[in-house]
Write a protein that binds this DNA or RNA. Structure first.
Length: 213
DNA sequence: TTGAGGATTCTC
DNA sequence: AGAATCCTCAAA
């Protein structure tokens, strides 16, 4: 992983090998990094918990589409939806569980030019990656990246820490864009960050103490 | 083979 | 508020 600068620590496999609702809030403030220099701080995430979670792609078992979710933790699960958008997740838990964390929004830090080029609709920094489809587009993540190992830096994509801890009191609320288990509060974001997604009005977010087992 | 629907975004 | 746009999966 020659493209990971000194001072940055790649998140180890064990980080992901836990319940997604534990991993998700700890993913806040970590950095998504591509070998071409694109880098952004993760500011909004959602947990999806497989067979125990009716809103998860993996709820009804493994299919061709969600196969990556059932593989080893620490890999990227990229899905296609609405005929035009990609969504990017970090696979969590153990092999066979089908659980993961959707990266919903990030604050761009480096190589913004490449991100603006990838997202012609974006006028400002807060348009670049403030949603799961936007984040994936800004980073050029698509089917080619499905299954990439985020720990090995496979295909030039990795998640690292620069030492900034997750927020002590992340904003918590219900997940967005789903039709089942709509009240489960499994979306976390960095409070007051301008790059979080603009979610529908039914959200009932609140500030609660982060659970830190 | 068919059709309904989707972990969304953009524009009107 | 509505359109865009096409892949996926279950059912027939």
């Amino acid at each position: 992983m020659d493209f990971v600068s000194k001072g940055l620590q790649v998140l180890p496999r064990g980080f992901y090998r836990r319940h997604p609702a534990l991993v998700a809030p700890e993913l806040l403030n970590k950095l998504l990094l591509r070998s071409d220099g694109r880098c952004a701080r993760i500011v909004e995430v959602e947990a999806y918990a497989g067979s125990e979670d009716p809103a998860a792609h993996s709820f009804r078992g493994q299919t061709a589409r969600n196969a990556t979710m059932f593989g080893p933790p620490g890999h990227l699960y990229v899905y296609f939806t609405y005929g035009m958008h990609w969504g990017s997740n970090a696979v969590c838990g153990e092999v066979g569980e089908g659980v993961g964390v959707l990266m919903r929004a990030a604050e761009p830090l480096h190589n913004l030019e490449l991100m603006y080029a990838a997202r012609r609709a974006a006028k400002r920094l807060s348009d670049l990656a403030s949603g799961p489809g936007k984040l994936s587009q800004a980073f050029g993540l698509n089917r080619d990246f499905d299954g990439a190992d985020l720990v090995q830096g496979d295909r030039g994509i990795v998640i690292v820490s620069d030492g900034v801890p997750p927020p002590d009191n992340p904003t918590v609320g219900p997940r967005v864009g789903i039709t089942r288990a709509v009240d489960t509060p499994w979306r976390w974001s960095v409070p007051a960050n301008p790059c979080v997604s603009k979610a529908p009005s039914r959200r009932r977010d609140s500030q609660i103490a982060a659970s830190r087992p």
